[in-house]
Simulated scan of single mutants.
Amino acid sequence: MSNPVYLALDLPQLDAAKALAEQVRAHIGGIKLGLEFFCAHGHHGVHEIAHLGLPIFLDLKLHDIPNTVAGAMQAIHVLEPAIVTVHASGGRAMMEDAKAAAANGTRVVAVTMLTSMDDRDLMQTGVAGKAHDQVLRLAELAQTAGLDGIVCSGHEVGSVHRQWKDGFFVVPGLRMGNNGTGDQKRVVTPRQARDDGASVLVVGRPISRADDPAAAARAIEATL
């Protein structure tokens, strides 16, 4: 992958989303469309963004019984996504069915633990221990289920990469050194994540909320 940066394009207005993507398209490798975008614009919105000619990452974080998730996967075949997410906490059977139902050429990756959560948040969900250990456990489960890879923070990607040599690793929650973290808790820079084994770097606000999004995307690209 020549440019691993995927822009998180979660804007409520389709015209604004298309305009932003056009501004930065020369400095990114793909576009991530999440729940906010998909719920607002559906299949039509995905098709409109796909006209830009960049790979589409559908970050839907599917999490339901295996049959329902498989049906959802089949329903998005027509969108030809390069990457789709499911939640690893849905279990092995769910992940196996998700992968089996995915279109040829679509990577299915499992979200391990949201980058907005830390050890304390994890404990409040009833899971004792460190976020790092939970990510490694869920990564092993995703690998056993036959998925292509996982989503994790930059704090864990190095350890997961050592455990899963040929895995495909998506790292969100990235910030440049001079950016605030916002609602993210486990953050690193794009360069650090890439050095530690990240396959895809998801960048949102540092680009989308910059005074000059194209310049911000270009600056991130230059660090890689």
Rank of each mutant, 00 (worst) to 15 (best):
D15Y: 03
A145R: 09
R25W: 10
H161C: 08
L79D: 07
R107Y: 08
R120W: 03
I76D: 01
F38T: 03
E22Y: 02
S116A: 09
P172R: 09
D118I: 15
A139Y: 12
I220G: 00
R186Y: 07
K32G: 06
M176H: 12
R218M: 00
A93P: 10
G182T: 03
Q74V: 08
L138D: 09
G42I: 05
D166W: 04
A100Y: 13
G146R: 08
L114G: 02
N104D: 14
N178S: 12
L20C: 06
N179E: 15
A210C: 14
A216N: 02
M113Q: 10
T125V: 10
E140H: 12
G105F: 08
A110G: 13
I49Q: 00
G180D: 06
D10F: 10
M117S: 06
K99E: 15
G30W: 04
V187C: 12
V127A: 11
P66S: 09
G90D: 04
D211T: 15
F57A: 01
L224R: 01
Q124R: 06
G182S: 13
A103T: 09
G71I: 12
G177A: 05
R191S: 14
L9A: 12
S116H: 11
I207D: 03
V111I: 13
R205A: 05
M176Q: 14
K185R: 14
G91S: 14
H41C: 09
R162I: 04
R137P: 07
D97S: 15
N178Y: 10
G173D: 01
N104W: 01
N3E: 10
N67Q: 06
L7W: 14
V171C: 03
D133P: 15
S199R: 01
G177P: 05
G71S: 07
D119Y: 01
L174N: 06
G71N: 12
K32A: 06
E22Q: 08
H155Y: 12
G158D: 14
D133H: 00
M117L: 15
L147G: 02
G154K: 07
Q74N: 14
L141Y: 01
G167W: 07
T189S: 08
I220W: 04
A19W: 13
G34D: 03
Q13K: 04
H63E: 10
D10P: 15
G173Q: 03
R162W: 06
D148E: 13
G180L: 10
G34E: 04
G34C: 05
G180Q: 14
D10L: 03
V109E: 04
V111C: 10
A210R: 12
L35Q: 11
N67L: 10
K18C: 12
V5T: 14
D59Y: 13
Q23T: 04
E140L: 05
L79Q: 09
H51Q: 08
S116Y: 11
G71K: 01
L9G: 11
L138T: 03
G167L: 06
V69T: 05
I49R: 00
L147I: 00
A219N: 04
H41S: 07
D183M: 06
S208D: 08
T223K: 08
S159M: 13
I65D: 14
R162H: 04
T68W: 02
H77A: 07
H87F: 13
T68H: 07
V151K: 06
D118N: 15
L114I: 11
I83M: 12
V109C: 03
A50H: 11
G34H: 07
